[in-house]
């Protein structure tokens, strides 16, 4: 019996020799329990050692193997070959980011934006260790829990045409994480985050395409976070208008 095979078309870019990226096709064995990442590992181990890509956990936790698979942003460890077989699989680096090499995207822009929204608890007052834990009820936790699931895989940025059109846009994951800390009862940093989140480059560059939430492998729903931030920021704006002597 001849072995079943599958063709994988990969966008290659070697900065030291290539002017432009170009597709290269590899033939890999087909296994119905393989994901695209397995096929890439097979190529790297057996066919072409020069292929570069990021991966780590192989189980949709680390968030490093995001790629465009047949034009859709997906974790390559989460995309089964059986969903494409016998057709070709086309693999490209995440859309909307510059290409460092082959399937490796340059993600510095996101890292800066993530940092800018202060994605950590900013307490009203520092709490000493002997004051004990800061208690939170399950209901208070559940109000923001979904937004804590973000693994920074950037599929949402690759899915977002507004980020592609306006690279200054703070973008889905960073804004979802800002919202996550704003909703946290232990946090008092909303005003600091609003500097970024409620700016023109913050939620206001979003046109609610909604694809960020569709692409998210962790059901974070950044589109909802952004929408809720728009509403809250609008209420802030009208409050400030009605009460110009208020503290904002």
């Amino acid at each position: 019996m001849t072995e079943q095979t599958l063709q994988v078309e990969i966008l290659r870019y070697r900065p030291e020799t290539d002017q432009d990226p170009a597709f290269q096709t590899y033939t890999v064995p087909y296994r119905d329990d393989w994901v695209v990442l397995d096929a890439l590992n097979h190529i790297k181990d057996n066919i072409d050692r020069t292929l570069s890509y990021r991966w780590s956990c192989h189980m949709a936790v680390c968030g490093s193997c995001g790629m465009m698979i047949n034009g859709e942003p997906k974790l390559s460890c989460h995309a089964f070959l059986r969903d494409y077989y016998p057709n070709k699989v086309r693999v490209e680096p995440l859309a909307n980011f510059p290409i460092e090499r082959d399937l490796v995207a340059v993600t510095d822009d996101f890292m800066e934006k993530l940092e800018s929204v202060k994605p950590y608890v900013i307490p009203q007052q520092e709490r000493a260790v002997d004051e004990g834990p800061h208690l939170q009820t399950p209901a208070q936790l559940n109000a923001f829990k979904q937004y804590t699931m973000c693994i920074n895989c950037l599929l949402c940025y690759a899915a977002c045409p507004q980020y592609g059109l306006t690279p200054d846009f703070v973008g889905p994951a960073a804004l979802a994480l800002a919202h996550r800390y704003n909703l946290d009862t232990r946090d008092a940093g909303r005003e600091q985050r609003q500097e970024i989140a409620a700016s023109n480059e913050g939620v206001w560059d979003c046109t609610f395409v909604g694809e960020c939430s569709q692409a998210c492998p962790k059901s974070v729903d950044p589109a909802a976070a952004i929408q809720q931030t728009k509403i809250a920021s609008t209420i802030d704006w009208y409050k400030a208008l009605l009460n110009p002597w208020g503290k904002r």
Binding site: Y13, G71, P98, E100, V106, V209, E211
Partner: peptide, 19 residues
């Protein structure tokens, strides 16, 4: 380093059905 920037085509909204 020589990061490669891909241009977003004007017809991006035809590329995927959801767009």
């Amino acid at each position: 380093r020589k990061p490669y920037l891909r241009k977003m085509p004007k017809s991006w909204w035809l590329a995927r059905r959801s767009y």
